[in-house]
Design a protein around this nucleic acid. Structure first.
Length: 558
RNA sequence: GCGCCUGUAGUUCAGUGGAGAGAAUGUCGGCCUCCGGAGCCGAAGGUCGCAGGUUCGAAUCCUGCCAGGCGCACCA
């Protein structure tokens, strides 16, 4: 049951409903069951509103339904008790034996806890960042990087086999603009001023690359037979240089990819015409005005048909992107998750239509849209345009606030929210930043464990730990929080929302700090010391594990 | 004009149709003889953008406004 207390309860309730025909619910009509964490302690560790839903469905008396379900739940050994509360909730109290068992599982299984079966080894690809290789990564890419990497970690934990991929748009007009920009910088370096292209990339990083190009090619550039060949050469050179820097930045941010996929390879392998003819075979391609069009109408209302091949003979970005997705799915992936910036929002329906035109179910492609980051210094907004060259790079942000703060910051908001990243605030908050609060809890535990070890107190035999001694409210709260860890991870995986885990970690750290200020772990009472050491060791492992999912370090000392 | 996202405490943000809307930060006031005070406890701070609707019950769902962001190419 994947160590999930909520799943245990749901399964029990489903069975209970089947057994109580008098509730008037057949298995088929059973509404989805929600188990939530109530706001007040008196309302239990968990609660459900199922009686409300069953009443609506059956018309039977709500308190009768509630009491029947309670009588059923009370037989479960993972629950201490259940109570029906007017107007229609069932409040659930987790059994101490279940809590103790969880602690032992965490310590024994370590990073393998919690274990999930629902991913079932299915292959899922997460494609993210995929920033154009025309300049350094900016802060918005940092959000995508944190989100994608963490999501991949979480899905891995959920039992999926994950592939992380970066799509390199190394073809098209942007690369041509890039090459012309470098060329202009090169002339500049040599003192022969040419007018800088209006639509060029104005960032100063191209000056260094121009110098490097000069060193690499020397006079050869001047003798290149055509401008086109010259730009091809410069474009490839520049893309390679920039990609190297992008990889360096991502590495510093703790993000690794399994595959870097070049758009140009699709051209080299003839993948695009192959893809178009595949869609054509299914009847979704037609010719008009000398161009080839993709027919979206069978899949979408209010969406215009789109060009795949221009009358000039060139393929559109859309065409190569369809080919790219076809390649992805041909690898036998169960699902593809693309993480795109908000500027691609209008592109989603089109791409999903194309996926269906290729013969794959619509849901096999999931697109996560993250909203933009508004970078600020105090009240002042800093624009983030690669073309204009006035942006604060991800690298600069990392230098200023550090990787852990940056990752936590990006991950503590929902991807739907437009977020303000105030560099002044982030720096000012650094000492009291939530991420340090969590890391501090971890370091404190490590410190206590070191102390215990120096006194010769170590946990050798887990069975000897008398966890029954952990009866203080703070201890119980901690245990409950640990017992909910599997559900937190599962829910983050199911909803594709890593930010849920930052909230969980803050809660867990807070409960630990409260416990710490009220109770001494190491005392003269050997049994109690042993039990508490066991408890905090489990907390330590949980914090480390979840921080790991977020890509944040867990330092033993701070 | 149309589509998507957002609007919650001074600020930055959580919040699964449920019970008395939460945290961090900022402000004010307390807590170290003892395992790490980067901590703990308390106070103040809210017309959940506005107006209707659905529901036993709405910050959450629907409709209409208002404000902000992002899109709406034979660009990528």
């Amino acid at each position: 049951m994947d160590n999930s207390i909520k799943e245990l309860i749901k399964a029990s309730l489903r069975e209970g409903c089947r057994n109580f025909k008098k509730i008037g619910i057949s298995g088929k009509h059973l509404p989805p069951i929600f188990i939530s964490q109530p706001k007040r302690k008196e309302w239990g560790d968990l609660s459900t509103n199922l009686p409300f839903l069953l009443q609506k469905e059956s018309g039977k008396d709500i308190s009768k339904i509630g009491k029947l379900l309670v009588s059923w739940l009370e037989n479960e050994d993972f629950l201490a008790r259940a109570e029906f509360i007017s107007p229609g909730f069932i409040n659930l109290f987790i059994a101490p034996s279940y809590l103790k068992q969880t602690i032992k599982k965490i310590i024994v299984q370590k990073e393998k806890f919690p274990r999930f079966s629902f991913g079932n080894g299915k292959r899922v690809q997460v494609e993210f960042v995929s920033a154009n290789p025309t300049g350094p990564l900016h802060v918005g890419h940092g959000r995508a990087a944190a989100l994608g990497d963490s999501l991949a970690n979480i899905l891995e934990k959920a039992g999926y086999k994950i592939e992380r991929e970066y799509y390199i748009n190394d073809v098209g007009s942007q690369i041509e603009r890039l090459a012309r920009s470098v060329w202009a910088r090169l002339q500049e370096v040599e003192g022969a001023g040419v007018p800088f292209p209006n639509d060029g990339y104005k960032g100063l990083y191209l000056i260094d690359i121009a110098k490097e190009a000069k060193d690499a090619f020397g006079e050869k550039l001047k003798h290149e037979e055509s401008k086109q060949k010259l730009f091809d050469l410069l474009g490839k050179f520049t893309v390679a240089k920039i990609l190297k820097e992008i990889k360096k930045d991502l590495d510093e941010f703790g993000v690794r990819f399994d595959r870097w996929f070049k758009e140009s390879s699709l051209y080299e392998n003839g993948e695009i015409p192959r893809t178009i003819s595949s869609i054509k075979d299914r009847g979704y391609v037609y010719e008009k005005g000398g161009a080839l069009w993709f027919k979206t109408s069978p899949f979408l209302k209010d969406e215009e048909d789109r060009v795949l091949k221009r009358k000039s003979g060139e393929y559109t970005y859309f065409a190569s992107d369809i080919a790219y997705h076809r390649v992805k799915f041909s690898r036998g992936l169960h699902q593809v998750i693309d993480i795109w910036g908000a500027d691609h929002i209008g592109y989603v329906p089109r791409m999903k239509a194309a996926i269906q035109a290729l013969g794959y179910p619509e849901g096999s492609l999931q697109v996560i849209i993250y909203q933009f980051v508004n970078l600020k210094r105090g009240e002042k907004s800093i624009s983030a345009s690669t073309r204009e060259g006035e942006f604060v790079s991800l690298r600069d942000v990392l230098r200023e606030v550090g990787r852990d703060v940056a990752r936590f910051f990006f991950l503590s908001r929902t991807q739907d929210s437009h977020l303000d990243f105030d560099l002044d605030l982030a720096k000012k908050q650094s000492p009291e930043n939530p991420v340090f609060y969590i890391q501090y809890a971890y370091a404190r535990i490590c410190s206590i464990l070191r102390k215990a070890e120096s006194k010769g107190i170590t946990i050798n035999n887990l069975e000897e730990a008398k966890l029954d001694l952990l009866v203080a409210p703070e201890e119980r709260e901690l245990m409950r929080e640990l017992a909910l860890l599997p559900d937190q991870v599962r829910e983050a995986a199911e909803s594709l929302e890593p930010h849920r885990l930052t909230t969980y970690l803050q809660e867990l750290a807070s409960l630990f700090h409260q416990f710490y200020t009220r109770h001494r772990v190491i005392s003269k009472d050997k049994d109690l010391t042993f039990a508490r050491l066991t408890l905090i060791k489990a907390v330590k492992l949980a914090i480390k594990d979840v921080l790991g999912l977020l890509g944040i370090s867990a330092p033993q000392k701070m």
